[in-house]
Amino acid sequence: MIEVSSLSRHYTMGPTVVKAVDDISFTIQSGEFVAIVGPSGSGKTSLMNILGCLDSPTAGSYQLAGEETSKLKKDQLAEIRSRRIGFVFQSFNLLPRESALENVELPMIYQGVSRKTRRERALAMLKKVGLDGREGHLPSELSGGQRQRVAIARALAGEPSILLADEPTGALDTKTGIEIMELFHTLHRDGATLILVTHDPKVARQAHRVIQVQDGRILADVPAGEWQL
C-alpha cells in the first residue's frame, strides 16, 4: 500500500540545512496498523505531512497504492488526498458551523459524490462510529470523544486507502482516549489501513507495528510486541 524509499525532507534555514526526514525507507501493507512514534522534533510530523500528501519530499520516492506522489503538483496532491487519505487530527478540526452530518459529508463534496449518496454514506459512517442520532448536532454540542468520532467518520467517508491519525487521543481524557483507540481497533479488524502518529509510547504500543523515528531517521521498525524504548 505504501512504499517509501530513500525519502528525505530537508529545510534550508539560512546557512543550515535541517534534515527533518533523512533517507527513510519502509513499506506498509494494506490492512496494517502502524504507529509512527517519536518525541517532538524527531521528524515524525514532517514524515506524516508527506505520507498525507500535504507536503512533497525533497528527495526519494513515495508510492501510495501504486502511484508515485513525490513529484506531484499542488492540485494533484489534493486529488490524492481526496481519493486516498483520511485525516484524523488531534484537535478534531471539525467545521464549527456545520452539523456532524455535514462535516462527514465534506470530503465527499470534493470527490463530487451526489448529494443523495453523500447523505446515505455519511449517515452510515456516523452509525459506524456509534453516533447515530447525533447527525444534526453542531460540534459545540458534542463532547470531545464524540467530536473525535465525527472526525473519524469524516476521515472514513471518502473511502480512503489509508487513515492517518495525528495524536488522535492527545486532546482527550484517558477514558475517552481508550474508547477512541477501541474504535481504531474495530476499524482495523474491518480491514482499514491505519497509521497513527504519536509521541506517546503507551498509545504506540496499541498498534501492531511501531516505527520509531529520531532525528529524521528510523530508529526501530518492529512489531509492537517486540518494541522497547
Binding site: 489534493a78 478540526n93 470534493y110 471518502g158
Partner: peptide
Amino acid sequence: REIGVRMALGAKTND
C-alpha cells in the same frame, strides 16, 4: 484553519 482542513480533505485550488 478551516481552509487548511478543507485542503486536507481534498479541496483543490478551484474549490
